[in-house]
């Protein structure tokens, strides 16, 4: 009995997030005709998967006590280079995907090593890397338009298997990996320890530097995957396509109950955060609100959840 109560208390924020997601879905369905059909729900879930996947990386970084502001142009660079290098030919994916993968690892390493080796604050390090990526991408594309995404990638983002969107299966697969890493592997425990108190973790034998670097690599990889999927979903890449994911990924993580200070939270919560944000986005047209309101909603979502969390903790 006390076990269950403890479990409830520990996962209070996550459970609250899921309850809110379900409530939002039910309330909206009651007012909007055709909202609760499987066809529409499927579309919503696919839309949620982009925030969900970028949020996966952001979860790892925030759990470790950092934050990744280089998400927008990491996503954008992957999407743009994918379409640019493939020229619409799926055969080119054979070399393009490994190159993009390697790029993501390098960007993650640069972020992580800058934070751990040079001691630069995560905010400023990742902000700088974001700028470098933007500059590099502008150099490569010269600000021009890139070709459409290869058919195979479009299929990956919009196709279905047995009525279930492939993008959703991809999300489920990476979510499973994230859950395994956080809950079943030593990496997860080391990450929580690092985020809670890096010094204590270091003194207890956690390789703090390595864990931190790894979290940034995971974040870059997640943004890259989201970039590939988004290029396929939209059918093309454009400059600025990643910008809102900075806000939405951080919002999803904090709505999911993770502490912005690190050390507390789980990807399970971020998934609920991604669902809530997607439902809020779907609500805007129903309420006849300007699409620009979405960014306002993201901002208030971050402020509200972080503010409430700090009140609960007594102002830390």
């Amino acid at each position: 009995m006390t076990d269950r109560r403890q479990w409830l208390r520990r996962n209070q924020a996550t459970l609250l997030a899921y309850a809110m997601a379900i409530a939002l879905f039910l309330v909206t369905s009651a007012f909007a005709h055709g909202f609760a059909t499987w066809n529409h729900t499927r579309v919503l879930l696919v839309q949620a998967c982009f925030i969900g996947i970028v949020g996966l990386g952001q979860t790892f970084v925030i759990l470790g006590g950092g934050v990744d502001l280089s998400v927008p142009w990491m996503l954008n660079a992957t999407a743009t280079l994918l379409t640019l290098w493939c020229h619409g030919q799926a055969a080119n994916l054979v070399w393009v995907l490994p190159v993009l993968l390697a790029m993501a690892v390098i960007v993650g390493l640069v972020n992580g090593l800058g934070v751990t080796l040079l001691g630069v604050s995560p905010i400023i390090m990742t902000l700088g890397v974001n700028g470098v990526l933007q500059g590099a991408l502008l150099l490569i594309t010269n600000g021009g338009q890139s070709p459409t995404a290869p058919h195979a990638i479009q299929q990956l983002a919009t196709g279905n298997v047995a009525g279930i969107p492939i993008a959703l299966l991809v999300w489920a697969a990476v979510a499973l990996i994230a859950w395994l890493l956080l809950s079943k592997m030593s990496l997860g425990r080391q990450l929580y320890a690092t985020g809670t108190n890096a010094r204590v973790a270091y003194l207890s034998g956690v390789r703090v530097g390595r864990v931190t670097v790894l979290s940034y690599v995971i974040s870059a990889l997640a943004s890259a995957l989201a970039g590939v999927l988004l290029a396929g979903y939209v059918g093309e890449a454009y400059l600025g396509m990643g910008d809102v994911y900075l806000f939405s990924s951080v919002a999803a993580v904090v709505i999911g109950g993770a502490s912005i200070l690190g050390g507390r939270g789980h990807y399970v919560g971020t998934v609920a955060g991604a669902l809530i944000l997607t439902l809020l986005a779907a609500l805007l047209p129903i309420l006849n609100l300007n699409p620009a309101a979405l960014q306002v909603v993201y901002g208030f979502a971050i402020l509200l959840t972080v503010g409430l969390a700090s009140l609960r903790l007594g102002g830390t």
Binding site: V67, I123, L246, F247, V250, V254, I260, L261, N290, A292, A293, L294, Q295, V296, V297, Y298, G299, F300, I302, L303, V306, G307, S310, L311, G315, T316
Partner: peptide
């Protein structure tokens, strides 16, 4: 917000950045 709640400056200003951006888009799409 930063002074009263002792929240980290970056998270507060990240949120208001998003809000100000949204309002700017609202005024002039």
């Amino acid at each position: 917000l930063i002074g009263l709640t002792r929240l980290q400056p970056f998270v507060v200003t990240l949120a208001t950045w998003s809000i100000f951006n949204g309002v700017a888009l609202w005024i002039l799409p």
